[in-house]
Design a protein around this nucleic acid. Structure first.
Length: 271
DNA sequence: CCTTCTACCTGTCAGC
DNA sequence: TGCTGACAGGTAGAAG
């Protein structure tokens, strides 16, 4: 999409998780996408109009890409989708025009509509302004995590889901990282030892890296842009494994509810 | 400010 | 077989 022009933007409904901004389509139409990047779980598209388009996939959002073929990408125009998207959930259509790769149609499909798109002006504040460091970057490590958790009375499970502590961690990967570090999700966040915050930071990086390498985690109807399913879900040690024996100590994996979310953990290994 | 709780939505699946 | 209800997730905003 970088370098391409939004030839046409079509909205098939007035809202996703939130209502679309006023004149959403016409404000994007005609602009060029100058840079596409990511922060936390948000996709960020800088537009030549000066505005920034933020896109979040929520739970079940996906982009379907048609066209945009080049010799370099082997003419990847249309994929054999492993998991076809139901057209009734095609909510936004971007018709793109690129000087090198030609026309492409990017369709946003989202059955549960937990995703959203927002248009933000150049110097307008945005909700990402105060979130924590990217977990895979150099700005995130044991000491940084320790400082962010200092004095926190909330449980470590809730703290790691708090995007101000570290960006982009969700329920699954928090469960897995805590298991690998041997820390109970019920521990007070501010009371972890230095070795524990160091270990936790490292395991967070490991879990995320491995999950990305595996193409992500697919639960039920989830898939990525080329319709392929990720397969990291087969590597979960604790998530979704209530009652199964811990692979390390054989104790049954437990499930409790914290902040309205399931926490899976081993009562034997995680203290 | 900090922390906790609930709403939002629909496909899937367990249980009747 | 067909139906009902619980459940899953990320984020915002209300409530405490």
């Amino acid at each position: 999409m970088e370098g391409a022009r939004f030839a046409r933007v079509t909205l098939n409904r007035p809202d996703l998780r939130f209502p679309f901004a006023e004149n959403f389509a016409s404000r994007i139409q005609g602009a060029h996408l100058t840079r596409l990047s990511r922060r936390a779980k948000f996709l960020r598209a800088d537009l030549s109009s000066g505005e920034t388009l933020y896109m979040h996939l929520g739970m079940s959002g996906r982009f379907i890409i048609e066209g945009g073929s080049t010799k370099e990408n082997g003419g990847l125009a249309n994929f054999a989708h492993e998991h076809a998207a139901n057209p009734k959930h095609h909510h936004v259509v971007f018709e793109m025009e690129h000087p090198d790769t030609g026309r492409a149609v990017i369709t946003y499909n989202d059955p549960r509509r937990f995703g959203f798109m927002e248009l933000i002006g150049e110097s307008e504040p945005y909700r990402l302004d105060h979130i924590g460091p990217e977990p895979l970057g150099n700005a995130f490590n044991g000491p940084v995590l320790r400082a962010a958790l200092k004095g926190k009375k909330s449980k470590i499970k809730a703290a790691l889901l708090d995007q101000r502590v570290v960006a982009g961690l969700g329920n699954i990967y928090v469960c897995e990282a805590l298991y690998r570090t041997g820390i109970s999700p019920r521990r007070a966040a501010g009371r972890l030892k230095v070795a524990e915050t160091d270990g936790l930071a490292g395991h967070i990086k490991d879990v995320l890296s491995e999950a990305i390498e595996a193409g992500g985690s697919s639960l039920r109807d989830f898939s990525n842009t080329d319709g392929k399913l990720g397969y990291f879900q087969h590597s979960f040690d604790v998530y979704g494994r209530e009652g199964e024996p811990c692979k390390s100590c054989d104790a049954p994996i437990k499930r409790i509810v914290q902040s309205g979310r399931s926490s899976f953990f081993c009562g034997g290994c995680q203290r």
